[in-house]
Design a protein around this nucleic acid. Structure first.
Lengths: 218, 218
DNA sequence: CCGGATCCTATTGGATACTG
DNA sequence: CAGTATCCAATAGGATCCGG
């Protein structure tokens, strides 16, 4: 109804009718990180026109992918259980698309939610399981994240810059060059030496551990 | 370049820029089954306008997802290795979208390639591994498929209707009601009793094995 | 402010016809 | 067969406005 259909009867087609419209999967991506308000979604998708955001939210609700959080005074959007089942697909697309990332263009931004999903898709639970629990504070573009790895479990949340640097094992800042670190193109030591990654606190040598915990082949 | 971008620097966004345009992932779906000529793609996507198909083929080539098969006299499109890495994503979307399939509308068609991908996404390799090798001939709408399960391996190919029925363990025909069989909503015995599935040859009781080998939760 | 709704314009997609 | 060209309809983009 909402979306134009493809005239075929199969799962891929149906899936695309539900989440294949422009912007739809990016809304899902951000909601995978947590429930969000209209304004938060708009902030995380800076170039989406408000009418399109409003339209997508309606369509995704009609599709049963998202819902307005019940018994909340303010309007909050969240994924339904069915919507949450998109997680492996979105993470897969994240890993796949990552390989085709070139250098960032000037106007391209890094949002906290996008980076959180990127880290999730890069997370190597099997590798992490064999390493000591570690807390990182990462400042990636305008996204400040507090990353906590404990065995095979990963927890990423938005962190206040100042506080975040305290009580973590490693605090660092980087820009889009983080891509080369995650892909293995740029060795951790060299990333620090060249200034691509700046250590703000903690033990800089832990960037090695970070790079082996989060990895996306190029 | 080809596609409008989203102004963000992350994998999901990049992925959508490459295969997020309307029709693009359906082209990938069909090419996952095998290399196809322009006309074959057009036949498998009956409602795609030829100018859009031509545009998508160019964009997907520029994106490194597909290529024209080299050293072939005729024009054949195939996935690149990078494009083939979309398989788990497309199969995941197939399984996800399947759950939201309602009853087929009159104008909706079932194409052989779409059905092949659907079967792949429904295939339970672990279940199949414990069962004897089995060959099926399935006539699903206009799609006639020859399905061969051997241990954890699955092979689906387009089959000539008449010949296909010979030498298989079970030959059957069904329409969109096949969905209820795959979802477990409709028991194999009842499917046959009600005529939703018509046994054309072989041992009808093997439809049980088929249903446990291919399953997509609703 | 937040959560949209409206208006208008710019691009894309769709249908059909046509060509090397 | 493998696409182009053309023209029209549908969406997306951008700015602005509005009600609680």
């Amino acid at each position: 109804m909402a979306a134009r259909d493809y005239g075929q009867y199969d799962g891929v087609t149906r899936g695309l009718e539900l989440v294949g419209e422009r912007w739809a999967l990016l809304i899902v991506r951000d909601l995978l990180v947590g429930p969000r308000r209209y304004g938060e979604l708009a902030a995380g998708l800076p170039r989406i026109p408000s009418n399109i955001l409003a339209a997508r939210l309606k369509e995704l609700q009609a599709a049963g992918v998202i819902r307005r959080a019940p018994r909340s005074r303010i309007v909050i959007y969240e994924l339904t259980p069915y919507g949450r089942e998109l997680e492996p697909i979105v993470l897969g697309l994240s890993a796949w698309g990552f390989k085709a990332l070139g250098d960032a263009r000037e106007e391209q931004i890094i949002t906290p939610d996008a980076m959180t999903v990127a880290l999730r898709s890069a997370f190597r639970a099997d590798v992490a399981a064999g390493l000591p629990a570690t807390a990182y504070a990462a400042q990636l573009g305008s996204a400040e994240l507090r990353i906590r790895v404990d065995g095979p479990a990963l927890d990423v949340r938005r962190g206040a810059g100042e506080d975040a640097a305290r009580g973590v094992d490693l605090a660092f800042a980087a820009g889009p060059e983080i891509r080369r670190l995650l892909s293995g193109e740029l060795a951790p030591a060299r990333a620090i030496a060249t200034g691509a990654v700046r250590v703000l606190g903690g033990r800089g040598e832990l960037l090695d551990r970070f790079a082996s915990t989060f990895h996306l082949a190029a």
